[in-house]
Amino acid sequence: MQALNRHIHPGWLIIAPLMLMVVALYLGPILNILWLSVTDPEPGFSNYAKLTEGDALIRIVWTTVRICIITTLFSVIFGYSIAYAMVHCHQRQKTYMLTLLLVSFWISILVRTFAWLMLLGRKGLVNVTLEDIGLIAEPVAFMRNELGVLIGMVHYMIPYAVLPLLVSMQSIDQRVMDASRNLGASGSQTFWRVYLPMTMPGLVASTLLVFILSLGFYVTPAVLGGGKVLMVAEYISVQLLVTLKWGTAAMLAAIMLIGVLVMLWIMSRFMKLSTVFGGAAR
């Protein structure tokens, strides 16, 4: 035991249970899925070749990427605005803002999706109200299309966009901005040339975080897209649970996984991952 202790730190003994569990029950099957993507139904890259064959698959991938990019764009812009306001206001107001942000963060995704269903439907509250005040004559299709998916996704992602930005903005020394103003820069010059570049790590982390989370998002697109907007996550679930085709699903999962890992690696260059989540967990 003594000899063992000298080579291996005893701390590993209490790390081991969780680590073994994650390796055996999580990493194992994920590697298995990667393996399936090149072996099922037959060895080779036939699953990947499907991407170039018909245009059905590539259209799903393209829809997913497009929706994720738009979601990320709006979430990060809105998130930046919220984070900026939070950092630049009085403590009391900031506490109220943070409370609202975290409450929305904590409300169940199912509750929120249900709420959007009630609000955006043909006879939903939004359409009824708009008709009552005479803004529209016909109900607007807010749902069962990309617009509905985007509303639901941006709504869900904004808090995730805010948290890394908040961490980054809080660490900025206010005196730098004062110095810029004293040296004769205007307010907008100071913002664009000093403030924005200084928040770049937070901006990158927030963008990648939202993009990654959007990629695998299942609930909101499935409900608000109403079968009309097919994204990768929903397609995978149909492949596995209805048509039982592991190969294609595994190929899509493998591409998604590799994309996510690459983005995580880029993100870790800008911000410690545990900071990103640490902010989220608080």
Binding site: L213, L215, F217, V260
Partner: peptide, 8 residues
Amino acid sequence: PLIIPQII
């Protein structure tokens, strides 16, 4: 496990 898409 926190960040890998839930669908995976």
